[in-house]
């Protein structure tokens, strides 16, 4: 057990570092969204019939006239207890709005991830079991596809082709189509590194020994090679999640899904500080946490990895 203690300490340092990041990001976003001329009161003033006195009163009510540092400390203290304040436009608790939007985003994320993993892993494994030129060509094509054609363009192309031209499906709220767009992007990102790693593992001595024992190719790859290469997927998980979240913002808006991405854009357009702040901080925190976890997990299952 003695060997695991320094590991735990490393993990603690890593978590501390990431906690610092989250605080720094909160502070940055806090300042960034407030240095803009024009706040939510102006926005409401333009929209409705709020006169100057009413605007001043509202600013005072919302605490927008207090020093920034105090506003931030106040926000931080509440955020730690899970209270991200109320939306300035809808007067609704931010947490409730995010919880409602999270459903759609989680559905989209889960479906995209499933598509991405299944397609990516299946293709990489198939290309390893049956080393054919066209299969590796497919691997490269998928990889180039995900790098060269952004999800925004893929989504637009899908809408143009199937919704407008062929009229096969509606655009708005089309979860499967949205998930397909992100899923193929994820598949393209993981298929190439995974295939390379599988190829490398195929040359390892335990695989050669298994092959010499007469293990058939499919069983060889699935039982002896693939488990060995799963660490690649863990190492890529941060990248995958970032792609998932980044892609989700665009694709949700494109397909009109009421998720976190749509919520974030709406909040940004309406200068709804508490909402912008909460969405950005929660997304950044989730990415940081997944990154930390994947690093720790990687270190745990593969001691050859560099220390945290």
């Amino acid at each position: 057990m003695s060997a695991s203690w320094p590991r735990l300490r490393d993990l603690g340092a890593l978590l501390l570092r990431h906690a610092g990041f989250i605080v720094a990001i909160s502070a940055c976003v806090f300042v960034l969204v407030r240095v803009v001329p024009g706040d939510v009161v102006d926005f409401l003033g333009v929209q409705g019939d709020l006169d100057a006195a009413g605007q001043a009163k509202l600013r005072q009510e919302l605490g927008l006239d207090r020093p920034l540092v105090l506003q931030f400390l106040d926000w931080g203290a509440r955020a730690l207890s899970g209270d991200f304040g109320r939306s300035l436009r809808f007067r609704e608790p931010v947490v409730a709005m995010m919880a409602r939007a999270a459903g759609a985003t989680l559905q989209l994320a889960a479906l995209s991830l499933a598509i991405g993993l299944v397609v990516g892993v299946a293709l990489a494994v198939a290309a390893t079991i049956w080393p054919r030129r066209w299969l590796d060509g497919l691997v490269d094509a998928l990889n180039v596809w995900s790098i060269a054609i952004p999800t925004f363009c893929v989504g637009l192309g899908l809408i143009l082709l199937f919704s407008i031209w062929l009229r096969w499906m509606p655009v708005l709220g089309n979860l499967p189509a949205a998930a397909l767009v992100i899923g193929l992007d994820i598949a393209g990102q993981i298929v190439k590194p995974l295939r390379e790693d599988l190829r490398e593992t195929m040359a390892a001595s335990h695989v050669r020994a298994a092959r010499a024992r007469g293990v058939p190719p499919a069983r060889l790859v699935l039982r002896h090679v693939l488990p060995h290469s799963l660490s690649v997927l863990i190492a890529l998980s941060g990248l995958i999640l970032a792609g998932l979240i980044g892609g989700a913002v665009t694709v949700e808006v494109l397909f009109g899904l009421p998720g976190i991405g749509s919520l974030a854009l709406d909040a940004i357009r309406g200068r709804d500080y508490p909402l912008v702040q909460a969405v950005v901080v929660v997304l950044a925190a989730s990415i940081l946490i997944v990154n930390a976890l994947s690093q720790a997990l990687l270190r745990l299952i593969d001691p050859r990895e560099a220390p945290l």
Partner: peptide
């Protein structure tokens, strides 16, 4: 390095969105 890591914690589109809001 810390600054770059900070920027990298926000996925592309979101970072650009926040920046556009701040810069107009």
């Amino acid at each position: 390095t810390a600054f770059v890591d900070l920027l990298r914690a926000l996925p592309g589109v979101l970072l650009a969105l926040v920046l556009v809001v701040a810069l107009g």
